[in-house]
């Protein structure tokens, strides 16, 4: 009985600590998401010429915007393009990140700190700036690589053609993203107890065997996490193709789903369709990432349970 007051008072303390996060989460996540869902269920309607103050009204649209998104071939075509792009990007980027992390972790590695920063540095360059820079490099008559090619007697390569554009954009993302993923993997690698390596070396294992048999299995959780992050970033790719778009005829305004959403909202002034497409994209992202986690969870984290 006498304990009661002392028990209720501390019960509020955790909430006091949580409140800033909860308030920020509500203001910057829950409310905008709620508003997006609300917008996606509405439509703007115009009467007659549409001129004059009372000509435009907003009304409830039900699921019509969602139906339009799901029926839109262009939306699904952009989704397919993103899958192709992701198929190029994610294995390359994560493969390189893993390779660099393993190389840096070798006992004989030199200039470790410098290499780590050098590989990580492109991540600090904003995607728009990186794309402007790469766009410049890709263009046939101003790119230095192209210039060398011409000097060597070749013809400039069209790096911004309908097919090559996939590689060109994936290249920008690999350049920018490898460093971040390498740091995540490398950090996980440093957390592996060194006794394991000693035991393996005593047993006569080579560095390659240690990497393959010990390091990579121990890295599984980190690899899965970087894969999920890359997957989400891939589905939402926007800055690179949007920045390259004015340089080429090969990139339509709806090349990726997010570009289509941007186009709907800001070029066509149809905020309601854009909201519905955003919700669809978010749900697809959710299904993909949770589905993948569900699939690999038992194998990767099973030992921890």
């Amino acid at each position: 009985m006498t304990r009661r007051p002392t028990r209720t008072a501390p019960a509020r303390v955790p909430y006091a600590f949580l409140s800033p996060a909860i308030v920020l989460f509500a203001v910057f996540m829950v409310v905008p998401i709620g508003y997006t869902v609300y917008l996606s269920l509405r439509r703007a309607k115009v009467t007659g010429l549409g001129l004059g103050a009372a000509a435009r009204s907003e009304s409830f649209a039900g699921l019509a915007n969602y139906r339009a998104v799901l029926d839109d071939d262009e939306f699904w075509r952009s989704a397919v393009r993103v899958l192709i792009y992701g198929g190029l990007l994610v294995p390359t980027m994560l493969g390189l990140a893993l390779l660099f992390a393993l190389l840096l972790d070798l006992p004989r590695a030199r200039a470790r700190r410098f290499s780590r920063i050098a590989i990580f540095l492109p991540y600090a360059v904003p995607a728009v700036i990186a794309s402007l820079m790469w766009g410049f490099i890709y263009l046939p008559s101003v790119g230095p690589g192209q210039w060398l090619l011409v000097q060597a007697g070749g013809d400039p390569v069209n790096l911004l053609g309908p097919t090559s554009i996939y590689f060109s954009i994936a290249n920008i993302a690999v350049w920018g993203g490898t460093g971040f993923n390498m740091i995540v993997i490398y950090t996980a690698l440093r957390a592996v107890p060194t006794e394991m390596y000693e035991a393996a070396r005593l047993d006569g294992a080579t560095e390659a065997q240690i990497a393959w048999r010990i390091k990579i299995p121990m890295l599984m959780p980190a690899l899965i996490m970087t894969f999920v992050f890359s997957l989400i970033a891939t589905l939402q790719v926007f800055s690179e193709p949007t920045t390259l778009r004015p340089l080429t005829n090969a990139l339509p305004s709806n090349w990726t789903p997010l570009m289509k959403i941007y186009q709907d909202a800001f070029a066509r002034d149809d905020i309601h369709s854009a909201a519905a497409a955003s919700v669809v994209l978010a749900l697809v992202t959710l299904v993909f990432s949770f589905g993948f986690l569900q699939l690999v969870q038992r194998r990767a984290f099973g030992s921890e349970q």
Binding site: L49, N249, D269
Partner: peptide, 21 residues
């Protein structure tokens, strides 16, 4: 007209596609 933005956006996509194709 009241939606030249749509006409213009379609110009870019449609003509770019015709040129690349």
């Amino acid at each position: 007209g009241p939606n030249v933005n749509v006409t213009y956006a379609t110009y870019k996509d449609a003509f770019a596609k015709a040129i690349t194709g």
